[in-house]
C-alpha cells in the first residue's frame, strides 16, 4: 500500500503522478481510470499544497490502497479544519462565457469522479477519504 509523504510544494506533483502511474500499471488499470486517479489526487493535493503551505505546514500524507477493483485514497494533513464536502464553493458549470465564474472546478471534478468522499477531523488533522471504483 503506497504511502507518500509529500512536501507542500508544487514541484512534488511529479512524484505523485509517478506513484499513481506505477500503481495503475501494477494493477493493469485502463488508461482512462489512471487519468481520473491522477486528476483526483492532483486536485486534493494542490489544495493541501496551497493552503497548508500558507499555514506553515510543510508536508502531508497520501495513501493509496487498491483492493480488487476499488481504490481507497486517503489524504491526511495538519492544516486548519477544512471539509471539502461542506466548505468548498459550488463550481459554476452553467453560466454564459462572460459570466462564468473562475474557480471551484477542482473539488467539483473530485466530487464527480469519486464514488464516495468522506471527511473527518481527528487528532488535529484533516482526513479525507476518497473511494474510486474501477469502471467495469
Amino acid at each position: 500500500m503506497p504511502s507518500l509523504k509529500i512536501k507542500t510544494e508544487v514541484a512534488e506533483l511529479g512524484r505523485i503522478f509517478a506513484a499513481v502511474d506505477e500503481l495503475g500499471s501494477q494493477n493493469n488499470w485502463p488508461d482512462d481510470f489512471i487519468f481520473r486517479i491522477n486528476l483526483v489526487v492532483e486536485e486534493v493535493a494542490m489544495n493541501c499544497i496551497k493552503y497548508c503551505h500558507m499555514e506553515g505546514v510543510s508536508d502531508f500524507e497520501i495513501t493509496m490502497d487498491p483492493q480488487d477493483d476499488v481504490l481507497t485514497i486517503e489524504i491526511i494533513d495538519a492544516g486548519r479544519p477544512f471539509d471539502p464536502l461542506m466548505d468548498a464553493p459550488e463550481a459554476d458549470t452553467d453560466s454564459d462565457i462572460e459570466d462564468r465564474a473562475i474557480g471551484g472546478l477542482g473539488i467539483h471534478l473530485v466530487r464527480t469522479m469519486t464514488d464516495d468522499m468522506r471527511y473527518r477531523r481527528e487528532a488535529d488533522q484533516n482526513h479525507l477519504t476518497l473511494i474510486m471504483h474501477k469502471p467495469s
Binding site: 488508461d31 482512462d32 487519468f35 481520473r36 486528476l39 463550481a91 459554476d92 458549470t93 452553467d94 454564459d96 462565457i97 462564468r100 472546478l105 467539483h108 471534478l109 464527480t112 469522479m113
Partner: peptide, 16 residues
C-alpha cells in the same frame, strides 16, 4: 482525447 473530453463536459466547458 476521450478522457479530456469527459473533463470538459463535467466542467461545463462544452457549453461555452
Amino acid at each position: 482525447i476521450a478522457s479530456v473530453k469527459d473533463i470538459f463536459a463535467i466542467s461545463g466547458f462544452d457549453k461555452i
